[in-house]
Structure formats: structure tokens, C-alpha cells
């Protein structure tokens, strides 16, 4: 055995304990459960406990759930709604979060610290309660809804006037609350990225005759693409699989995919179907990540040469 680099971290007993304990834990409580889900997606419901069964003979597995997944419009629709909602929420977070992050970098150091704390603070409070706060605002009797309704009524012709805007139990509410919940995830990586940019680049561009918006377009924006991608993923990924928000403020007839999984598993007791939808959702999340990693690797290879 080569004893190269004989540091504390390469001695036998220590090494084995430090690796094995977390490894075993993750295999037992994360990898095996996930394998169970994959296997389950090839079974069929049965009236027994637990409520599923495999074919008695070779090849044991059934592809029926996946057939239903691609033929039944419920699942396809839920997938599309999820992508739609997550994408809109990501774009809105970017539109609000980018100027916020940029303006934080322009403040002085102690002000930056305070502003960042204000952005992070809601994250440390309960997620559920932040959703709850919006339920209060969106209700038909709330001051916010009334205020919004009167603003709307001023703007539209008389016969379009509404007694109150229907906000709760709509897709709009889902997107709004997702933007609210995930905005810090967009602002923080963008800030980290923008804060590192060399301001002399802006000065150089100005010195060479660029106007301020041209400096932004030619210098700041291209250099902040890594931050935009990181923030976008941090919003898009959890938004895709969101369960709490659509369950509390969404419309039951336009379900997002997380809600479908829960319904199949809970109300319908169709564990194989719930598993198949879960596998599909995971694939939808992994694909953008692979694309991102690909670009990241390419960018790093480019930086090295």
C-alpha cells in the first residue's frame, strides 16, 4: 500500500470510521428508500397490505404505470402546470431579485450587511407561516385584496368592476407565493456573484465611451450569468416539486405534480402510480442540472486553458 500523503486523514482506522458511518446512514435511509420507489413504480395496486403486487412470474415487473403516465392527461397536465408555474416564478424572481442584488452591492459595507440580513431573515422563520401570511392577505375580506380591487376598478371600464378579486385557490396565488418564498434564493447567489465583480471593468467600459445601460449590457450582465444560473436553479428546482404552496393556496383542478404524487399515494392508495410520477418528476429536475453541469465544466475547462 502506498503511504503517500500521510496526514491524519489518510490513516487507516480514522479514515474508515469517518467514511463508513455517514456512508452507511445515507445508503440505508436515502439510497435504499429511493430504490424502493423505483422498484415500486413497476408494480401494480392490489387489495392487500401493503397495497401493491408484482407479477408472479418472470419478468415480474409491469410497465402499466408508465403507460398511464404518458397517456393519461392528468399527469401530463400536472407536469406542464408545474413547469409553467416554476418557470414563471423563476423569471419573476430574477426580474425582482437582480435589481435588488445589484442595488445592495452599491450600498456601503455596513448597509450591505443589514440589507442581506433583511433578505435572509424571512428564510429563518417558518416556511408554512410565510404561506399563511399570504392567505391572510389574499382573502376576499383582507385590506390588501380590497386595496387591489379598488385600484383595479379605477383602471377598468365600469361594467368590468368586481366586488373582490378572486386570488385564493388560483394558479396566480401559487406563483405569487412561490415568488415570495423563493426570492431570497435568487437574491443571495446573485449578490455573491455581483459583489465579486471588478468595478474597474465598469470604469474601463465608461472610459471607452459606453453609456451606463451599455456598461450594464456589455459588462455586468454577461459576467453575472453564473449567478443568474445558480439563482435560477435554486428557485426552479424546489418550485417544481412544491407541495405546500399549491395545497394551501392553489386550485385543486389545476394541480402541480407534487400534489398529484401525494393524492395518488394518500387518497387513491395507488403506490405504484405515485412512485412512477415521482420518478418522472425527478428526471425533470435532473435534466436541467446535467445541462448546467455541462456548461459549468466547459466554462472551467475554458478558464484553465
Amino acid at each position: 500500500m502506498s503511504r503517500a500523503n500521510d496526514s491524519w486523514f489518510n490513516r487507516r482506522g480514522w479514515r474508515d470510521t469517518i467514511i463508513t458511518a455517514p456512508y452507511l446512514w445515507l445508503v440505508l435511509f436515502f439510497l435504499i428508500p429511493f430504490i424502493i420507489v423505483i422498484v415500486m413504480s413497476f408494480a401494480k395496486t392490489a387489495t392487500q397490505s401493503p397495497p401493491f403486487a408484482f407479477l408472479p412470474d418472470w419478468p415480474y415487473v409491469r410497465f402499466e404505470t408508465y403507460e398511464r403516465l404518458f397517456t393519461n392527461s392528468v399527469y401530463i397536465r400536472a407536469g406542464l402546470i408545474s413547469i409553467y408555474n416554476a418557470a414563471i416564478a423563476t423569471v419573476l424572481c430574477l426580474l425582482i431579485g437582480y435589481p435588488m442584488a445589484l442595488s445592495i452591492t452599491r450600498a456601503n459595507k455596513s448597509m450591505q450587511r443589514l440589507l442581506l440580513m433583511l433578505i435572509i431573515l424571512p428564510f429563518w422563520t417558518s416556511f408554512l407561516l410565510r404561506v399563511y401570511a399570504w392567505i391572510g392577505l389574499m382573502g376576499r375580506n383582507s385590506w390588501f385584496n380590497k386595496w387591489l380591487t379598488s385600484a383595479y376598478n379605477v383602471l377598468v371600464p365600469g361594467n368590468w368592476e368586481l366586488p373582490a378579486i378572486q386570488m385564493m385557490n388560483t394558479n396566480f396565488a401559487v406563483v405569487l407565493v412561490m415568488v415570495y418564498s423563493y426570492l431570497p434564493f435568487m437574491v443571495l447567489p446573485l449578490y455573491a456573484n455581483l459583489e465579486k465583480l471588478d468595478t474597474t471593468l465598469n470604469e474601463a467600459a465608461m472610459d471607452l465611451g459606453s453609456r451606463r445601460w451599455q456598461v450594464f449590457r456589455d459588462v455586468t450582465l454577461p459576467l453575472s450569468i453564473p449567478g443568474i444560473i445558480a439563482g435560477g436553479l435554486l428557485v426552479f428546482i424546489p418550485a417544481m416539486g412544491e407541495l405546500i404552496i399549491p395545497s394551501l393556496v392553489g386550485n385543486a383542478s389545476d394541480p402541480m405534480i407534487g400534489r398529484v404524487i401525494q393524492q395518488e399515494f394518500g387518497q387513491n392508495r395507488d403506490w405504484p402510480m405515485a412512485s412512477a410520477v415521482a420518478v418522472a418528476l425527478l428526471l425533470m429536475l435532473v435534466v436541467p442540472l446535467i445541462v448546467y453541469n455541462h456548461f459549468e465544466a466547459k466554462a472551467q475547462a475554458g478558464a484553465k486553458s
Binding site: I96, P99, L137, L183
Partner: peptide, 18 residues
Amino acid sequence: LFSVLAFGLAFLYVPIFS
């Protein structure tokens, strides 16, 4: 930029204060 920052912070905190 500063008006968006102010709007964003209001967006984050108005529901909580309400």
C-alpha cells in the same frame, strides 16, 4: 435600482407585518 430594492423589501415584509 433603489425603488426595486424598496419594493422587494416591502414585498418580503408587508405580509409578515400584516
